[in-house]
Design a binder for these strands. Structure first.
Length: 220
DNA sequence: GCGTGATCATGG
DNA sequence: CCATGATCACGC
């Protein structure tokens, strides 16, 4: 992708740009940026997110950052079903598996990423070409006090399993708003973690995700 | 290998 | 139909 928008100076400017996306099609937006949809669209799972980074002027690439560092705002695309509800869970960040003893909720990646999010919803529909998919009304969101209390509890519960060497007991059914699922190229990928006896083991990389039922409350 | 962007594909 | 567990692409 070639064209890249300059970074928005203020939250208001970012919001203006985001609202300009409303009702636009994916194909139209790509054309404006001088790029084409990839031929194997299904395999390029992050393509829309990366397009929006460019369109809205987010910081480059895969650095560990909020997408808009000076604004403290994270950018997330959100696929919607035809009924307007989210189709998928939302990836937030990797689960730290080593050296987590001093980590707290407010010092965690999850806390910082969820502090403020610009959601760009779009209608996901495999019955038509992705070229014709429409963006919807953007949402600038921060968790309520009540929501953050639950998120914090989920994070603490899940992280305690990580710290206690109980990785084998972690699965996606745990957590009310937050869940942990694999996050890797495939199931053969290994990283270091804490095992049952407290020693270092090789294990699968994991990620924190927001449940679809939680993001549904955001878009409704 | 790790972290960014996520959705895919199948079993229940 | 749906969430879980698995997977895809890319930068460095």
């Amino acid at each position: 992708m070639k064209n890249k928008t300059t970074s928005p100076a203020t939250e208001a400017e970012l919001w203006e740009r985001a609202c300009g996306l409303r009702e636009k099609t994916l194909g139209h937006l790509a054309a404006e940026m001088g790029i084409e949809l990839p031929p194997h669209f299904k395999r390029e799972k992050g393509w829309i997110g990366q397009l929006l980074e460019r369109v809205l002027g987010a910081s480059a690439g895969s650095l560990a950052k909020p997408d808009f560092p000076h604004l403290g705002i994270e950018l997330k695309t959100l696929p919607l079903k035809s009924n307007g509800k989210p189709k998928e869970s939302t990836y937030i960040s990797m689960v730290p598996l080593m050296n987590t003893s001093l980590l707290t909720w407010t010092s965690s990646d999850v806390y910082h990423k969820l502090h403020r999010i610009l959601w760009i919803p779009y209608f996901f529909d495999t019955a038509i070409s992705p070229y014709h998919w429409h963006f919807s009304q953007p949402i600038l969101w921060s968790p309520s006090v009540e929501e953050e209390a639950v998120l914090k509890q989920d994070w603490q519960d899940l992280m305690s399993l990580v710290q206690l060497g109980q990785l084998d007991q972690i699965h996606a059914r745990l957590g009310e708003y937050l869940q942990i699922r694999p996050k890797a190229m495939n199931a053969a990928v290994r990283t270091k973690g804490i095992g049952q006896d407290g020693t270092k083991i090789q294990t699968s990389p994991l990620g924190f995700y927001l449940r679809t039922s939680f993001t549904e409350k955001i878009v409704l």
